[in-house]
């Protein structure tokens, strides 16, 4: 090659050399899009309150991230959508009628304490939105358990409050629940649609499953965590959920109520806070399901999904260590 200079023939770069089109921000915005149907259903059932709470969470979360990064002179990463998604998930996990300062405190706890203090996206140990919610539940236990009755009319100013189906189930038993909803098939139907009291975005199972199907189709999430989570809940509900005898429980009510669908598909599957090895993810899902049912059936709270995911978040690094595959040929010391 006598001095001949060929440009762009040999490019020296560090790996990875083959890049996919998926980026962090694309995944974050897609998950947010997947939550849209459930959010629209909540607007239909809970009206302006749902919009107010969710919008406030989103705005304050994004703002908190922006101000934090500005103050510490870090790169501003607001546009990657992760703080938007955190705010959206937090909002969808809150009751639809709250005074304005509660969502703001939750956003601060989620974005600044749980995520940014640990080094930002990718380093947080706990799911930010769930820590935000757990913090609010413990700080304002009264306000956080006032559930608005769904009205299906957009401007219902005189909203009534009521208990969530799981609350009724815990306090008064299944008889009262059936009385409130008529018969069993109607109960299932209303739970599927989301016509019941609960957090803003957790009620409409159909809309959530639609979003989850989109994420599964795009392979942003895999079946491992949701399936092992839901399977464990169904199994425990069936075996221990009944009154008196074993194997008389109703798994369908437990599957369709509370924040289970939202938690299993959208929050337990958070890449950062779940184990990264498939086998570990199944253990993680089973653990989430077991703790959820332990709290629902025996604990002091009617709903356990949030605490279950948070408790398993603590164990995620340990699970990852335990299931780490040993390279072929390694000699045991």
């Amino acid at each position: 090659m006598a001095g001949e200079k060929k440009e762009h023939e040999l490019i020296v770069s560090v790996s990875p050399h083959v890049k996919g089109e998926e980026t962090v921000s694309r995944i974050m915005w897609s998950v947010s899009l997947a939550l849209l149907p459930a959010f629209l259903m909540s607007l239909y059932y809970f009206g302006p309150g749902a919009l107010f709470v969710t919008a406030l969470c989103v705005i304050t979360s994004v703002l908190a991230e922006y101000l934090y990064q500005k103050a510490l002179e870090k790169k501003i990463t607001v546009s990657d959508g992760s703080s938007f998604l955190t705010g959206l998930l937090l909002g969808m996990n809150l009751p639809p009628s709250l005074p304005f300062y509660i969502p703001i405190a939750g956003s601060f706890m989620a974005v600044v304490i749980t995520k940014q203090l640990f080094g930002g996206l990718g380093y947080n140990i706990f799911n930010p939105a769930l820590i935000g919610r757990a913090f609010l539940l413990i700080t304002w236990p009264k306000a956080m358990t006032i559930w608005k009755e769904p009205t299906a009319i957009f401007v219902a100013l005189d909203a009534k409050t009521t208990a969530t189906p799981l609350g009724i189930l815990k306090e008064e038993g299944i008889g009262k629940l059936l009385e409130a909803f008529g018969d069993k098939s109607n109960l299932y139907m209303q739970l599927l649609l989301g016509n019941r009291a609960g957090s803003v975005g957790e009620t409409s199972v159909v809309a959530l499953l639609l979003g989850a199907a989109f994420l599964l189709y795009r392979r942003y999430i895999t079946w491992h965590i949701p399936l092992s989570f839901l399977g464990t809940v169904a199994l425990i509900a069936w075996v221990f959920g009944g009154k008196g005898a074993f194997f008389t429980g109703d798994p369908v009510i437990h599957l369709l109520s509370g924040g289970l669908i939202l938690g299993a598909f959208f929050m337990a599957t958070d890449y950062v806070t779940c184990p990264s090895i498939r086998k570990g993810q199944i253990i993680f899902g089973i653990g989430c399901g077991a703790v959820t049912m332990l709290i629902r059936l025996k604990g002091g709270y009617p709903e356990g999904v949030m605490f279950a995911i948070l408790i398993m978040n603590c164990f995620a690094p340990l699970i990852d260590r335990a299931v780490k595959t040993v390279p072929f040929g390694t000699v045991k010391k």
């Binding site: 304490i113 749980t114 706990f126 757990a134 709290i295 949030m306 605490f307 279950a308 948070l310 603590c314």
Partner: peptide, 18 residues
């Protein structure tokens, strides 16, 4: 300390169990 506080927050879910 922050981690310990957040784990404690998660463990409050067990309250009232036994």
């Amino acid at each position: 300390f922050v981690v310990a506080g957040l784990i404690a927050l998660a463990f409050t879910g067990f309250s009232g169990l036994i």
